[in-house]
Design a protein around this nucleic acid. Structure first.
Length: 423
RNA sequence: GGAGAGCUGGCAGAGUGGUCGAAUGCGGCAGUCUUGAAAACUGUUGACUGUCAUAGGUCCGGGGGUUCGAAUCCCUCGCUCUCCGCCA
């Protein structure tokens, strides 16, 4: 969430920036400022009462110790009224703070100055394209047909045991999954990311910390009996490791990578664009997370983008990098690069990675801070990027690498798969 | 799942109604000594809120209660540990 004092001191700029994100409820900004003002006013009154009550209680204590019981009783009578007053103020404050929090969490992060205006996918800016688009034979197939031709992914079987969007990987298909996970983790380690293995169920506080709650409640699977959520991305458990943490400035940059399955309800998705591996309820992903000094986060997002591009180059996949427009960005990000690979069977670009800078938006919820050079507490910046999500990588590998001998595995993966062709 | 014990500052750990935001030790920071370092010694060292700055307020796992006054008493929830049971 945004910082209150920033909103207070930069009202006009906040409204202008939110406009880039096509945020409709701009009235919230003034509501928040007004609530904050009344909160502070009531807090001041409440504090004054508390100060008086404290002073009297102290006097009573002193008198009791001196054995002046009568005088103490006299003051006691005077101070009994404070209780009610304090209670009233406490309730009033709690209610204002609750409203204020409810409203401020509805305000998305402000987009960075480089973010183009726009409403959706068509308005995203193509930053660069790399690799040549493959030209396939006339009888080239989309990946879901390849998957059943070689019997490597079974969508029907997944539907039988769980439901749509939960595929079963078989034989070389399963092996390819494991190869990709290991390749991505090894690459991350080589690039200096500390590997973590984290829980894939998280509590409500963690969902709030990274911004999934309350905003995207309906997108997560919820385990009711224990009130836990299945993670939609490793970003949630990994970033929340640093919830309520004060780090030392010399710990920067903190770099983590982790593999987890990810679970998304994807309520409302349908149609050809979600066929096969294009959109799943459960998928595998290696995620990278960085916690950095605020001065460095925009350098780091470029570095993370280059890292992801390096993976795609090694996999020999044609890709492009998009700078998301205001309307297409997530709630919590201030700048996002999406990496898309070209999948020749479907003749479509598929998003395989999203690299974002959240500036202090998550850190403020997480209370993730550091003591700066001047000795003052300051919020850190958080970033993350998929490196990479498997299903669409698999889709494009299958589609782009169709040959007469079968599906050709990129050279970097062969040591991991143990085979050169899916046939 | 059953029984018991506990949750205090970065860490360890005292504190069972007022003088407690909290002893002491360790750690951190600054200094003295030293060519430098270590050791020793001295000083210093929580967060949030609030103010132009002071002042003030809040925080001893979370929430509620008793009291003029709660780290301390009561209720409740959560978590941790020990023992038993179960178990990959």
């Amino acid at each position: 969430m945004l910082q209150l004092n920033y909103i207070r001191e930069n009202r006009d700029q906040v409204i202008e920036r939110l406009g880039i994100k096509n945020f409709k409820e701009l009235g919230l900004v003034d509501e928040i400022i007004a609530l904050d003002e009344s909160r502070r006013k009531i807090q001041a009154e409440s504090d004054a009462i508390a100060a008086e009550a404290n002073a009297l209680a102290k006097q009573i204590g002193d008198l009791m110790r001196q054995g002046k019981k009568d005088e103490a009783e006299e003051i006691k009578a005077k101070s009994s009224g404070y209780k009610e007053q304090t209670k009233t103020f406490t309730e009033k404050l709690a209610s204002i703070e609750e409203t204020l929090l409810a409203k401020i969490v509805m305000v998305p992060n402000l987009p960075h100055s480089s973010v183009p205006a726009g409403f959706g996918a068509d308005d995203n800016e193509v930053v660069l394209e790399n690799g040549t688009l493959p030209t396939l034979a006339e009888d080239a197939l989309p990946h879901w047909e390849i998957a059943s031709k070689y019997d490597i992914i079974d969508f029907e079987l997944g539907t039988k045991i769980t439901g749509a969007g939960f595929p079963v990987y078989k034989g070389k298909g399963a092996r390819l999954q494991r190869a990709l996970i290991n390749f991505f983790l090894d690459q991350a380690a080589e690039a200096g990311y500390d590997e973590l293995q984290v829980p894939i169920l998280v509590n409500e506080a963690s969902g709030f910390g990274t911004g999934q709650l309350p905003d995207k409640e309906g997108q997560m699977y919820h385990v009711g009996v224990d009130d836990l959520y299945l993670i939609p991305t490793a970003e949630v458990p990994v970033t929340n490791l640093y919830r309520d943490v004060i780090i030392k400035e010399e710990q920067f940059p903190i770099r983590h990578a982790g593999y987890t399955p990810c679970f998304r309800r994807e309520a409302g998705s349908y149609g050809a664009h979600v066929r096969g591996l294009n959109r799943l309820h459960q998928f595998d992903k290696v995620e990278t997370v960085q916690i950095v000094h605020p001065d460095k986060s925009y350098e780091v997002i470029e570095e993370m983008s280059l890292y992801v591009q390096g993976l795609l180059q090694q996999l020999e996949l044609p890709y492009r990098v998009l700078r998301l427009c205001g309307g297409d960005m997530s709630f919590t990000a201030s700048l996002t690069y999406d990496m898309e690979v070209y999948s020749a069977g479907q003749k479509r670009w598929l998003e395989v990675s999203s690299v974002s800078n959240f500036e202090t938006y998550q850190a403020n919820r997480l209370k993730l801070r550091f003591k700066n050079a001047a000795g003052k507490m300051q919020l850190a910046h958080t970033l993350n990027g998929s490196a990479l999500a498997l299903p669409r990588i698999v889709a494009s590998l299958l589609e782009n690498n169709q040959t007469e001998k079968g599906i050709k595995i990129p050279a970097v993966l062969v040591p991991y798969t143990g085979f050169e062709y899916i046939d």
